[in-house]
Each structure stands twice: as structure tokens, then as C-alpha cells.
């Protein structure tokens, strides 16, 4: 399973955390698509604490954290 955490406005209308089977989320982009998040809504995508790209592959046990564009001041 891949553990996924959503932050800030990505939580609106969704859960804050998901456990997804590796079969449905081979990459970070697959996770974003599976959760029906418009791709442009995610700007920071951490895999085990390091920012990656949508095409980055994920493995069982990985922790993926997704953030929307950074906010105002």
C-alpha cells in the first residue's frame, strides 16, 4: 500500500489521508488522477519527504504528501 496525505485545499471534498494499493498508483501522477485532483492543483509532491515529479514511481510503503499552490501572505 502507498500512504497518501493531502494538505490544505486539496482536502476540500476529500479525505485527508488514503491508503492506496500500489496497483492503482504506480506513479505520483497516477495517485493524483485516482483521487480526481486536477493536475494543476498540485504543486508540491513529496515522496518520503522529497519533492518529486508526477512521473516519479512509487513503491509499497512510500508516504506521498500532496500540496496545492502555496498561499498568500
Amino acid at each position: 500500500m502507498v500512504e497518501v496525505r493531502l494538505f490544505a485545499t486539496l482536502r476540500d471534498g476529500r479525505e485527508k489521508a488514503y491508503s492506496l494499493p500500489r496497483e492503482v498508483c504506480g506513479t505520483v501522477g497516477d495517485i493524483i488522477a485516482h483521487l480526481e485532483i486536477p493536475p494543476g492543483d498540485v504543486t508540491i509532491m513529496l515522496v518520503n519527504g522529497r519533492h518529486q515529479k508526477p512521473e516519479t514511481a512509487v513503491s509499497d510503503g512510500d508516504l506521498v504528501a500532496l500540496f496545492p499552490p502555496v498561499g498568500g501572505g
Binding site: 482536502r11 502555496v70 501572505g73
Partner: peptide, 30 residues
């Protein structure tokens, strides 16, 4: 940064992760 009822705080310290490590150079301002 803040957005509605959400926000974050992040210290940028030499030797640690910085905003470029988070991909800020590739994203547009909301």
C-alpha cells in the same frame, strides 16, 4: 503561507531543505 482556513510555516535553514527543494522555482503564484 495561508489560504482560507489553511496555512503552513517552514523554516529555511542552511544545510536543510529550501524552497527550491520544494519546487517553488517551477510553480506560479496563486
Amino acid at each position: 503561507g495561508i489560504d482560507g482556513f489553511y496555512g503552513y510555516v517552514f523554516p529555511v535553514l542552511r544545510g536543510g531543505a529550501c524552497l527550491r527543494c520544494l519546487g517553488y522555482a517551477e510553480i506560479a503564484s496563486p
